[in-house]
Nucleic acid binder design. Structure first.
Lengths: 343, 343
DNA sequence: ACTTGGCACTCGCCGTCATGGAGTGCCAGA
DNA sequence: TCTGGCACTCCATGACGGCGAGTGCCAAGT
């Protein structure tokens, strides 16, 4: 009985604090939410909640503020993802439908997500390892330089310029191009090393150095740089919270400029279904102790491809943000499937 | 005579204010710089400078602070671009030399610039209108979808997916690809419309709808999206200045997220040689009234291609920043020329 | 066994006030 | 034209005190 009310109190505290950004006291709590009890009772509950580590007071005789643990409990047990209204859904879909290519889909997605959540949004480009190769192009740039272009079925284009030690023949490049095409078309990135094992076989000894250089760069481009690109939008929202707040934005901005950090934030979400929430210190990243990260993966076809999400202060609207992230992720999945015609 | 000293005083004020970020008074001024006169004399000069609009006082009986006009005079007449030290130059060159492709050059440049200026850096991708077409690729993605890929001699790749109203034949696509290749290879983007005027001629009536759609998208991609991409780095530096400063970062971050704004900041610099400085309200952009923008164009071959620069508070180290921007721009020019083999 | 009203207590917030000091403008004299 | 002196202006700082929101605890009520 009391246990149940205690949780209701925690929920109320989180909701109030998120709304007002001010420590919430027992009196205002009973006024705003109609729990049918007196402030004194609430105070007892609050003392218990504080004991258990779910809330804290900034200083004696101030209201209570949820701790990371409190938000965690709130997210896990006290809130439901509230679905978006259907006009919202339609607006999302319409906006994303206008995208003209993959870059545009990504750009629109990240801006949209930042806009509807009023937070900083992140979107990872579709993973390459899981996509299949649609086309390979080799373009001679100068006598000793060749550009490699890889086009995948997700509509992504990878490019790389390689420098050769000696001048290369146009015809050799053409030959290599067609052989690469045959060997790789329809294969996934993961299969590439295997498929290229015998590729240098038919070439003359002198051409093999070219082949080896191109192939090694190609493999490198497909493995090493996989998943690397992340777009970000809405960093200005970080500055919205009165500057006094325990959200010093400098470390946050610094952290978000590191590719490594972004990948760590988004990477894990790719392995999990549903919406993932990491609160405050749960984040494995220095500088983000005062922020929460909400992510979801999006899919292309049946395979998980990449993820997207938002970063905001721990005192955020979790249900709303989770709903938005979820919705955007699923619409992006749909758009990718439609646009790139999987077969 | 007095005129000369007045300018020396202004220079000293700017230097001190940039160093300390505090209004500077007559006494501290004679102490730090050895102007051979008494504080009282300086006060007279300051009164005159204030009269002319070069400096201002935040409130009566505080020190003086340079105005936008004061910085302008300082930049135009009172400072020289101090060249970077040669270790610095070497470090820049070494760092940029390691870049493996155009994306990498851009990414490294923007990070480098942010790092050495300790400010927010912007780098615009090389302009397309001025670059020439190296290769055109058409890739059937599904029965009704075709992806267009354009590769330029600056190493840039533009891509776009087009949807056709009816299924297209593989052979038609192949035919169109080779004709496009012939018509466009070696041409500049500006010449493209002309070169494509007669392209649909040889095609049968039923194929012409495909041709028209592809060509129109191609032209659109080449004109409309030209110059669009800008990379940014070092936004965290904006937060470094104690939050109290007249640099509220939210409007700045908001402005910097608008492509249009970025293009307006960088675009103009492309038309001018040398380093361009816009101070405070000289900026044609809302939200950047308290910031200065320092830009320089970089070139590829003999043609101007695009520009790069930094954004920071008006009280910045102009000579140092100008030197850095200038140096980075010239190194980028060199790298591009070397890497993409101009012929 | 909970809940509730009462009560004393804590402590941050805010306005007032006084003080000190940095800086200014102006004037008279060199 | 420069300089020293002087009166004046304000900002910053710190001390002080009252206010009020909020708490913890206890004794009484249901």
């Amino acid at each position: 009985m009391q246990e149940e009310r205690r949780l209701a109190v925690l929920r109320a505290i989180v909701q109030d604090y998120v709304a007002t950004h001010e420590p919430v006291g027992s009196k205002t709590l009973v006024e705003r939410h109609n729990l049918g009890v007196s402030p004194a009772t609430i105070r007892n509950d609050m003392a218990a909640l504080e004991e258990e580590g779910y809330i804290a007071q900034p200083h004696t005789s101030a209201g209570r503020v949820p701790t990371d643990l409190g938000y965690r409990l709130f997210v896990d047990r006290l809130s439901e993802i509230k679905p978006l209204s259907s006009p919202e859904r339609r607006a999302i879909q319409r906006f994303l439908d206008e995208a003209i290519d993959l870059d545009d889909v990504m750009a629109r997605t990240v801006r949209l997500l930042a806009q509807i959540t009023q937070q900083t949004a992140l979107v990872q480009y579709p993973s390459l390892t899981r996509s299949t190769i649609r086309h390979i192009e080799l373009v001679p740039i100068s006598s000793t330089r060749v550009m490699i272009v890889v086009i995948t079925d997700t509509g992504r284009v990878e490019q790389r310029t390689v420098e050769c030690t000696q001048p290369v023949e146009e015809s050799t490049v053409g030959d290599l191009r067609s052989r690469l095409g045959v060997a790789l078309a329809g294969r996934s990135f993961a299969e590439a090393p295997e498929a290229l094992a015998d590729i240098e076989e038919p070439f003359s000894a002198e051409d093999r150095s070219l082949v080896r250089i191109v192939v090694s760069h190609l493999l490198e481009a497909m493995t090493e740089r996989t998943d690397e690109r992340v777009m970000m939008s809405g960093t200005a929202h970080l500055a919205r919270y009165g500057q006094a707040f325990p959200l010093a934005i400098q470390p946050v901005l610094e952290a978000l400029e590191e590719q490594v950090v972004l990948m760590r934030l988004l990477g894990e979400a790719t392995t999990q279904p549903g919406v993932m929430v990491r609160i405050g210190r749960e984040n494995p990243v220095e500088g983000l102790e005062a922020t929460s990260v909400i992510t979801a993966r999006y899919a292309h076809g049946e395979q998980a491809v990449a993820s997207l999400g938002v970063v905001g202060p721990t005192h955020m609207d979790y249900p709303g943000t989770m709903a938005s992230v979820h919705a955007v992720a699923s619409y992006v999945s749909r758009i990718l499937d439609e646009q790139q015609g999987s077969r």
